[in-house]
Design a protein around this nucleic acid. Structure first.
Length: 291
DNA sequence: ACCGCACCCTGAGCGC
DNA sequence: TGCGCTCAGGGTGCGG
């Protein structure tokens, strides 16, 4: 589940092998839910173009092209953007992993989940976009033209302030966690950093948003930013599928305080971390540290 | 306006 | 061994 930190790590590491190189050929899988721009049109439009920059908006990657076009990518749940030559086992199915001899490494080969392959005029490493569940998205637009998906986004989480959350939460009966997952309020927060941020703030995920104090909103936004900054610094969370463009794992999962730690002791008070469902998402919290 | 929920997709893990 | 079930979840869109 790539969220803002994983997308930012991806952006920083893929940028040097993407920006400024002339795209030669584009390989795609067949038309699907994944392609908001039909694959054949996408391939035609990208050939001969250069990516001029690589930006991030919330969980989206946005790549302006040298002809005024704009490539927009979303990694969804299981999206992986990486360079040729990597050997991570996260790019293999469980069966393929099991077939490897101990210690054996295998270079990535495009499979049926590899929806986009960019080859470059310079003959250097290809760039791949692989996504098993196809919750990811790719679309081509033009710089300056409306893009509903991007235009809907609220303030980027790293730039958010407590006042943003406080204002958005007034009069809302829904759980604070539901509000944090709403990308039109704060962009970039997903299940992991919502849970981690709420833990750092000492606020239960199921608390009604409208009942939060201004101080609590400040603490929640501070907590989210703190866990996100730390995650970026450690290469993101590789809990299931996330792999950096160079094939390396992130290490932030080792620092998680609540996410996917149900039953394990709270790092502060040793109470077992609880798991429940809030806003139709698995939710983890400490029953003692969070009120 | 707001909120809950179904849906899109595939693979891992589990019980029988 | 293998089948069928459940779960995971980002974002969109719908109905109440």
């Amino acid at each position: 589940m790539p969220e803002l930190p994983e997308v930012e790590v991806t952006r920083r590491r893929i940028e040097p092998v993407l920006v400024g190189r002339e795209i030669d050929r584009v390989g795609t899988t067949r038309s699907s839910y994944f392609f908001l721009t039909p694959p054949r049109r996408l391939a035609r439009a990208l050939a001969g173009r250069k990516v001029a920059a690589l930006e991030r908006q919330g969980k989206y990657l946005v790549a302006p092209l040298d002809d005024g076009g704009r490539l927009v990518l979303h990694l969804g749940m299981t999206g992986q953007l990486f360079c040729d030559g990597v050997t991570s086992v996260r790019l293999l199915s469980a069966a393929a992993r099991a077939a490897l001899a101990p210690g054996e490494q295998r270079s990535f080969r495009p499979d049926r989940h590899t929806h986009l392959r960019l080859q470059f005029r310079d003959g250097g490493p290809d760039v791949f976009f692989r996504d098993v569940r196809k919750f990811g998205k790719v679309l081509l637009g033009r710089v300056g033209e409306p893009c509903p998906r991007l235009d809907r986004l609220g303030v980027d989480a790293l730039a958010a302030r407590g006042s943003t959350l406080f204002r958005a939460s007034r009069g809302r009966r829904a759980a604070v966690k539901a509000l944090l997952l709403d990308q039109s309020v704060i962009a970039g927060v997903g299940n992991i950093y919502a849970d981690e941020g709420l833990y750092l703030a000492g606020v239960r995920p199921a608390r009604r948003a409208g009942r939060l104090t201004r101080a609590e909103c400040d603490a929640i936004v501070t907590g989210i930013k703190r866990s996100m900054r730390r995650s970026i610094a450690t290469g993101g969370s590789s809990i299931s599928d996330f792999v950096a463009p160079d094939g390396s794992d992130g290490r932030y999962q080792d620092e998680r305080r609540v996410y996917a730690r149900s039953g394990e002791p709270c790092r502060v008070c040793a109470s077992p971390i609880r798991k429940s469902s809030v806003a139709q998402r698995s939710t983890h919290y400490c029953p003692r540290c969070q009120r």
